[in-house]
Amino acid sequence: MSFDNLDTLYRQVIMDHYKNPRNKGSLQDSVTVDMNNPTCGDRIHLTMKIEDGKVIDAKFEGEGCSISMSSASMMTEAIKGQTIENALKLSKIFSDMMQGKEYDDDIDLGDIEALQGVSKFPARIKCATLAWKAMEKGVRSEVE
């Protein structure tokens, strides 16, 4: 597949998650994290059910650009059913990808891979990582 076709496909995946977000909403009796990106106004309200060291469910609400909201949608899909350890590992891989570093490509990132082009736009990296930072904060609060 040519680079232009791949770029188009990735854009379509991002827009699909933006227009049809997965896991939109809020959970009761859950770990709750509110974060925002003051430079662009993106904000997220993330709720997660964590039991026995595992992310049972995750939902988000918020406002922001297509990168921020689609990343939140992809992140909630990726962490549901994962152990805290695996959720944090996914976050590390995502962070490395955003920084243009080598990352463990043995793990199937699914739709998340569509965001790798964001690394070429440093001003947009904070948009893409907002939900991931919120997740890290939430799961770490459960471990401490």
Results as ranks from 00 to 15, higher is better:
12 Q>I: 00
74 M>G: 04
81 G>S: 03
97 M>W: 06
71 S>C: 13
106 D>F: 02
110 G>A: 02
110 G>P: 10
76 T>I: 09
24 K>Q: 06
85 E>V: 11
118 V>F: 10
71 S>I: 11
91 S>Q: 10
38 P>S: 09
44 I>L: 09
101 K>I: 08
51 E>N: 09
104 D>I: 09
64 G>N: 03
74 M>N: 01
10 Y>S: 01
26 S>Y: 11
95 S>M: 14
80 K>T: 14
47 T>I: 08
74 M>I: 07
29 D>A: 09
114 A>G: 12
71 S>A: 13
57 D>M: 12
41 G>Q: 10
76 T>A: 02
110 G>D: 01
102 E>R: 15
105 D>G: 08
67 I>D: 04
31 V>W: 04
79 I>N: 01
13 V>P: 11
92 K>H: 12
12 Q>R: 09
106 D>G: 12
116 Q>E: 12
103 Y>P: 05
38 P>Q: 06
80 K>W: 11
63 E>R: 14
115 L>E: 03
80 K>L: 04
78 A>P: 13
16 D>V: 03
31 V>A: 01
16 D>Y: 10
89 K>N: 09
16 D>L: 01
64 G>K: 07
45 H>P: 11
96 D>W: 02
41 G>D: 09
29 D>F: 10
32 T>L: 07
61 E>I: 14
75 M>Q: 02
83 T>C: 09
82 Q>W: 04
103 Y>I: 07
39 T>K: 05
14 I>G: 02
49 K>Q: 09
101 K>S: 12
113 E>A: 15
81 G>C: 05
84 I>L: 12
92 K>N: 10
114 A>R: 14
85 E>A: 14
28 Q>V: 02
114 A>D: 01
91 S>P: 08
41 G>V: 13
40 C>T: 05
